[in-house]
Amino acid sequence: MTTITMSTGESLIFFGLIAAVTMFTRFLPFLLFPENKKTPKYVEYLGLVLPYAIIGMLVVYCLKNATPLAYPFALPELISVVSIGLLQKWRNNMLLSIGGGTLLYMVLVQAVFV
């Protein structure tokens, strides 16, 4: 069990910093390109194509700690990802896909590939 290493005050600063930087990333584009200015064409293009690329990047980011060359050879991740794909194709129900995939992964890392 992990124990708390921060005081309540430190924890508040910890999450306060995260909240402030998160807001910064969300507000910056609107501050850089205010309503009375025309958005550059290049920026409009980026707004169009980037969302797809970023989700692809996030999938890789989430799987960054998988170890395909050492035990358990990324098998928990692989099995769960394929199952999510199949569940999604079968029912197209987010709850089922996310809940089912997560439970499967938890069972795999806690009980199967120990």
Partner: peptide, 9 residues
């Protein structure tokens, strides 16, 4: 892994 699952979906 719930987060991974969400992004995959």
């Amino acid at each position: 892994f719930a987060l991974t699952a969400l992004f995959i979906v």
